[in-house]
Write a protein that binds this DNA or RNA. Structure first.
Lengths: 181, 181
DNA sequence: TCCGATGTTGGATTGAGTCCAACAATACAT
DNA sequence: ATGTATTGTTGGACTCAATCCAACATCGGA
């Protein structure tokens, strides 16, 4: 994602390091009881640096997924077909901080926060997919409805995959969910 | 909604008064530039009182709609059919602060905030409707997808009604949107 | 007139998020 | 070697949303 700058001071940390530190603390103390300062202290950087890597405390869990969403949004604007573009979000999505948080949502006391963040990502996909559908002639309301179904499928598949009570692969969950739409 | 207490000090203000004060200020200064203190100062109450009426600054626009959502959620848990329950959200929904904010989103500089709040409401409906569908035997993924379509329809209808470029009634927009789902 | 219930208020506190200027570490050009 | 531009880090000050609480105000009823 970051295009490797060819000059300047190298980064002292990384999204992954901060993300892991955050996950540990969320599991130990819970999300609310963990401040941004706690996270950066454990990661060994200053509080200011946190916001060089993430735009908000809640984003620390969504960094990986958001990269896929960014790519999907770009593809949709380039004219990609919604169904294929959304299906591609699952490709290469690794079990990361988000998956861990979904599974341990109760232990982290993060259920409500997770709902909010999920809603925001889903709606972003919905808006972009709907815009794409309208651009190819769909009625605005119908486009929102179909895009709502598709984007709900994406997030539902990620959830089903993360707390894999059924040992289900993400690709399978994604195609089953999108097939229902 | 408030069950009229038969004793105790009467309320010095109301949700409506605060909501109107907030709308005025959002239009004059924008959402971000308006603090909670600004709102309560204009409404003639203390800052503390604001949080007796609303749980967050952003909720000041959603109070009316949230009452309908609360009712819908209760109906869904009582076993109401998702399609009818969601359609009923539109009944009796008056043009209030929310509708004003949708129309004047740009002037208020509130577009991003409005997206977030819309996403949260839509997802709440989706979750509850999906739970209802699962309870009557639907597959979990398919339920999320269908509930996603239905809840997207509700919010899309409200938006289409609010910025009524087409002078469309809410009931019409709602039935057209739900028909597409 | 007193009592319980409900509402209001001010103040203190916490923590997220922003902003900025000073400083540090790198690649590159000369 | 020695600048120089570039990028990243840091500490600190700052704003503001949101929480909490104890003191006080205003009602109905006993």
């Amino acid at each position: 994602m970051t295009p490797e700058p060819r000059s300047g001071r190298p980064r002292a940390s990384s999204r992954e390091v901060l993300s892991e530190a955050a996950c540990e603390l969320f599991l130990e103390q819970g999300y609310d009881a963990t401040s941004v300062s706690d996270i950066t202290r454990r990661a060994g950087v200053s509080r200011s640096s946190f916001f060089n890597y993430f735009s908000a405390k809640s984003d620390v869990l969504w960094s990986g997924f958001d990269e896929r969403v960014d790519a999907a949004v770009a593809d949709l604007r380039d004219g990609g077909a919604p169904l294929e573009v959304l299906a591609a979000i699952g490709d290469g999505l690794a079990p990361d901080a988000l998956a861990l948080a979904i599974v341990n949502a109760d232990a982290m006391g993060i259920a409500a926060e997770l709902d909010r963040d999920r809603a925001i990502r889903q709606f972003r996909l919905q808006r972009e997919a709907a815009a794409r559908l309208v651009r190819e002639g769909a009625a605005p309301l119908a486009a929102q409805v179909r895009a709502g179904a598709l984007s709900a499928a994406v997030l539902a598949a990620v959830w089903a995959w993360a707390d894999h009570t059924a040992g289900r692969s993400l690709t399978d969950a994604m195609s089953e969910a999108l097939a229902a739409a």
